[in-house]
Amino acid sequence: MSELGLQTAGLLAVFGFLIGILGSVMGVGGGVFIVPLLVLWLKVPVHQAIAVSLVAIIATSSAVASVNVERGLANMRLGVVLEMTTALGSIAGALVSNMLPDRVVQVLFSLVLFPVAVMMFLKGLRSGRSALQGHGPAPPARPAGPFDAEFFDPSSSSRTSYAVRRIVPASLLSLLGGSLSGLLGLGGGIIQVPVMNLMCGVPIKAATATSNFLMGVSAAASVLIFFKRGLVVHELAAVIVFGVLLGSFVGMRVLYKAKPEKIQMGFSVLVILVAVRMLAGAWRP
């Protein structure tokens, strides 16, 4: 802890706590916030920030998934099939990331967040409208496929069952989600949640939980590569992991009770703010 300083370590743990709440509520592992925090505030080189972010993502994913699997919220079958492509993309992303200079990675990071934020904002608006029109319970009448599942949703006090569609294109897009994880230290939830929700037809809460479940594996795939190159700063990672874990435990309770549309709206606004700050930071000498 000597290089870090007790006060900085304390503040970092507090930020980690807040990031853990946001991460577990919104289905992002928190990389969207951890990388900018370390780069902009502590001036940590972006590759080290990515490595710390990936470790934190594994912590959040493992803690949150352990609860979501038992609740039936995380779809393990869908998760593991998508993990095949996210892990592959993650390894490729990590190898490419380690070849690129810091500033290029930081600009890439910022640019990736813009379309993601816009997409999530539009989706949030749409789901808000459909919620106003009311969406009655519509259990699928077709015979259950191997990925179909159901869970109990306390915000509507009912069991929600769903069919999973378009698994092949979703797997291909997950390659992209995984590569973002290795390349930029993002959990990949920013791709995986919309892919599962919009493309596969998985309800937002189950998509969020499944994304959280699978991002631990994609983050592990790339962090192993960063770890071997000595880019994981132990003290930084330890402090962030503590904060993020505590935040995740608190956030999990919020996620289970929150209305789905609120999750999406909060997501988009925060991502835009972070993208602007990060891009501005990359231009500064």
């Binding site: 802890m1 000597s2 470790v55 594994i58 912590a59 994913s61 493992s62 998934a65 593991v80 993990e83 631990g216 594996v217 983050a219 592990a220 962090v223 192993l224 770890f227 994981v232 132990h234 003290e235 990672a237 330890a238 992991v241």
Partner: peptide, 28 residues
Amino acid sequence: LGLASSAASGAVLGAGILVLVLTPVARV
């Protein structure tokens, strides 16, 4: 150990991080 300025701190933290990284591997 770090607060006590022990030399073992770094190695123990490293082991803790490695265990965390291997957790999803064990899950698979």
